[in-house]
Design a binder for these strands. Structure first.
Lengths: 194, 194
DNA sequence: CACGATAGCCAACACGCGTTGGCAAACCGA
DNA sequence: TCGGTTTGCCAACGCGTGTTGGCTATCGTG
């Protein structure tokens, strides 16, 4: 079965509604019927479009989550720059919603956990590796350092996102973006410098 | 209806099984029937004991989560000391299980989120306040500083716990406790010093 | 215009869930 | 030993879920 342009709008509406539902309630509590109602569509159509609830989840999370390139930034301002990029990414309309729903669903959905593991294990680590002093290439203790830095950075970013977007832990939960950046910047910088 | 010592063992078994189930699957996916089977008890007895699934969850999380007192520690070693206490608490047999299940359930259970908000908003903040330089008491900018430090510390701790105990993000997921402490120590120290 | 594929809708199925009520056995204090 | 309470078990209810099949209307294409 193939779909035509005739149902494109409906399928997009379902996908948008699914992102909202998964981001708000997590995978388990989000219902196919609820998504369908929100999209103004019959529940059976959701299954026809995306085969199953799992398929719907997969489609809803199939979006490019690549970290924006950091570019040439003075070493002492990398923390602030990175913090800015992350807030940008998490507060962004599409990527932010997907990241939030992944984070909210990860504790109970192995698929979501896999996705998060992939994003952070590879992307964050690669970024940390790039930032390391090139003169130290080949240093035997380098991998341990890189491991610790990327682990700390991943943890801190994940924790901030969890506190701000999922748990709404004060004061991060309803802080302005620039306040979040001001909080994150020095910490990220410290993790990278150590 | 009151319970006697006769059913004490069964009620304890149910509670232990509930902690396991909630910590493994989260609130939604954990089933009363599964808990009952694991405890070697009929599902209806679980309800009789704890009224409802919500009541069971509440009973399973009713445990003292107080942070251990830090005591007099040289300022420069507070990071390592704090990191050690946290790993101790999270790796502990009872508290660790409850913390894990709270973290895993928080994204979909408002009750669990409330509990976490309480623990981190109050306990962590109070601890950070105590560590602040006493000479600066009354400083107008002090609250902002304290806010940011406790926010960063809470985020980092939450993120580390999420990465290690829920997502099992490498390399933290299966690292030895001393490796976790070695990673956390400097970061915590940096957050407190800034 | 005709015809096959697609879209939309309705009803229903099968399943697992939390929860309830009833009934017999075991316990324990008077 | 008696009588009331607690315990354990079984069956079942009501509900919401993901999913399926079939019917009609609508579209796009030769």
């Amino acid at each position: 079965m193939a779909f035509t342009a005739r149902s494109q709008a409906a399928r997009d509406a379902v996908l948008a509604a699914a992102r909202r539902a998964f981001a708000t309630h997590g995978f388990e509590r989000a219902t196919v019927r609820g998504v369908a109602a929100d999209a103004g569509v019959d529940a059976s159509m959701v299954i026809r479009y995306y085969t199953s609830k799992d398929g719907l989840f997969e489609a809803a999370t199939a979006i490019d989550l690549a970290l924006p390139e950091l570019g040439p930034v003075v070493a002492s301002e990398r923390g602030a720059a990175l913090a800015e990029r992350f807030v940008e990414l998490w507060d962004g309309p599409d990527t932010g919603e997907v990241l939030t729903l992944l984070l909210r669903s990860a504790p109970t959905s192995e698929r979501a956990a896999d996705r998060i593991r992939d994003v952070f294990s590879t992307q964050v680590r690669v970024m940390v590796e790039r930032l390391v002093d090139p003169r130290r290439t080949g240093d035997p203790g380098l991998q341990v350092i890189t491991d610790r830095r990327s682990a700390a950075l991943s943890s801190y970013i994940l924790g901030t996102a969890l506190a701000r977007y999922v748990l709404r832990l004060p004061p991060l939960g309803d802080a302005r973006p620039d306040e979040v950046i001001a909080t994150m910047g020095p910490v990220v910088q410290a993790i990278l410098d150590r």
